[in-house]
């Protein structure tokens, strides 16, 4: 029981951090959720995380909220085996995600005009935006490639090397690369809606595998 309470508090704190440090919307948030939930806490695997993102993209609502709700449910119900605690987990994660926006937005509404023409604020945002683009790119790279640092050799403190493997759960064969390329082309040049692309992808999965 105490373990469950600690997990719940950890979940709340983690999503509070994610909500505070997400600048640039839902996709930027994915890289933070991934960093905390998959890499740091190892609550979910890369494969499960990708599934959750897929489900979040198909259900209505902001992708960050969907992912937080799902992760909250999954982490707590997997640890305790109870649906009810899972619901509590999803509630905690979603509330924690929204809370920082709430506090900061209320301050911004009050200082509306003052904020807009502040040059320091503009300077910071000018550097934050490119960083956020890189972070979103990293989320895609982590789901595609897995980087592992080799342990240090005797007498050294630095890792002896880096190996990079393809994440086989997400890219098992050439067909998956073909699907990736087709979806990219359809979305980037064809401006095909993501929902339609995901529906087609599910159908393609049934046909190809």
């Amino acid at each position: 029981m105490t373990d469950t309470i600690i997990l719940l508090l950890q979940l709340f704190w983690t999503f509070l951090l994610i909500g505070t440090f997400t600048i640039g919307g839902g996709y930027a948030m994915l890289s933070l959720i991934q960093g905390e939930v998959v890499v740091h806490h190892a609550w979910l695997s890369e494969k499960t995380f990708t599934d959750i993102v897929a489900i979040s993209q198909m259900t209505p609502g902001p992708i960050g909220i969907n992912t937080a709700t799902y992760v909250g449910y999954d982490v707590l119900s997997a640890a305790s085996g109870s649906h009810l605690l899972g619901i509590l987990g999803s509630f905690a994660a979603t509330l924690a995600l929204v809370l920082p926006s709430f506090v900061i937005m209320l301050m911004i509404v009050r200082f509306y005009q003052k904020f807009k023409s502040n040059r320091l604020f503009e300077g910071v945002m000018g550097a934050i935006r490119p960083t956020v683009a890189g972070l979103i790119g990293a989320a895609a790279v982590v789901l595609t490639l897995k980087a592992t640092w080799l342990p240090p050799e005797a007498g050294s403190i630095l890792p002896s090397g880096l190996t990079i493997d393809i994440v086989r759960e997400n890219f098992p064969d050439w067909k998956s690369w073909l699907l990736f390329a087709a979806a990219f082309a359809a979305s980037w040049w064809g401006k095909v809606s993501p929902i339609l692309l995901l529906l087609i992808a599910a159908g393609a999965g049934l046909l190809l595998y």
């Binding site: 993102v53 683009a133 979103i136 699907l179 990736f180 995901l198 992808a201 599910a202």
Partner: peptide
């Protein structure tokens, strides 16, 4: 179905980036 979805999800992250 999810085997087909996974690579597409990643492509859909690359595009907004």
């Amino acid at each position: 179905a999810f085997q087909g979805l996974r690579p597409v999800v990643i492509a859909l992250i690359v595009v907004p980036m």
